[in-house]
């Protein structure tokens, strides 16, 4: 039996997330993946921003830091620069990481600093009541899109790939075992890793879009999910609106802090 309690601050449970919230499914998948790494708990640093996703850090019995909206990645960058031996994991959301924190997200990916970013994508601002986010699908409803949403949405995987992340994957709460697997692969990568996990917010998103229960919403996610391999043989039109899952990049490129130490520290110490 898997011992979740080992990794939890049990006195903080039950957590604040709504009944059936996918965030809990992701948190559990992340815990199982972290467990596979065999890290000392003292060596793990969990950093989050603001929003529903970002409450995750408070439940984890690691070093934990709940920062400002959008800024988890730069806080984590400073921690990694100061103590590279820490295993730094960022828990963030679609709004936190791709709206207010979008700039930090792409630049950390560009640097290839060794952070594992687990991005809970529930397509909405849940904590503030259901306003549309950069990933709310076009045509759906949000509290700030009462007539239907008109913005095209971000493809977070494409964003991370374009910015230079060395590990990029997408999974969903409809497939917890696969999610665990890709998070584990991301944790293993020495560099910037992005794992987008599509999650259900039936309370703030589903109820406005004819999906009242967590089960209905998870099944809606499943019905739109297509593996990367399958998607490759699909026409562009068929891929429209689909959630393509799998590992999109897994490669080795020099890690930022290691490069700094290799090139800058050594040169500086040798005299300028």
């Amino acid at each position: 039996m898997f011992d979740y309690a080992e990794y939890l601050r049990l006195d903080k449970l039950p957590h604040i997330w709504c009944y059936g919230c996918g965030n809990g499914i992701i948190l559990k998948g992340a815990i199982r993946a972290i467990d596979k790494m065999g890290w000392e708990k003292d060596s793990v640093m969990a950093v989050s921003g603001i929003g529903c996703s970002s409450r995750a850090t408070g439940y984890l019995d690691f070093n934990s830091l709940h920062t400002l909206h959008g800024r988890a990645i730069p806080f984590a960058t400073g921690i990694k620069m100061a103590k590279p031996e820490l295993n730094v994991i960022v828990f963030t959301g679609d709004g936190d990481a791709t709206a207010i924190g979008g700039n930090h997200f792409i630049h950390a990916a560009r640097r290839n600093i060794n952070l594992t970013v687990i991005l809970f994508n529930n397509n909405i601002y849940g904590m503030t009541g259901g306003q549309y986010s950069p990933t709310t699908p076009k045509g759906y409803f949000a509290s700030t899109a009462p007539y239907g949403h008109i913005d095209p949405s971000f493809d977070i995987v494409e964003l991370a790939l374009g910015a230079g992340a060395t590990f990029v994957a997408r999974s969903t709460v409809a497939n917890p075992r696969e999610m665990e697997k890709v998070i584990h692969e991301g944790l293993k990568n020495k560099g910037f890793s992005l794992i987008e996990v599509v999650s259900n917010c039936h309370e703030r998103f589903g109820k406005r879009n004819k999906m009242k229960s967590p089960y209905e919403m998870i099944e809606w996610i499943r019905s739109r999910s297509v593996s990367k391999v399958k998607a490759e043989s699909m026409e562009a039109e068929e891929r429209e609106g689909k959630i393509i899952t799998g590992i999109f990049r897994q490669e080795t490129r020099p890690e930022y802090v290691e490069t700094y130490d290799e090139l800058v520290l050594k040169k500086a110490r040798g005299g300028i």
């Binding site: 039996m1 898997f2 449970l13 809990g24 499914i25 948190l27 559990k28 917890p176």
Partner: peptide, 14 residues
């Protein structure tokens, strides 16, 4: 059940 439970409320022991 265990994997989908978001609340750490159900565990299966062999």
């Amino acid at each position: 059940c265990e994997n989908y439970c978001p609340d750490f409320a159900i565990e299966i022991e062999e």
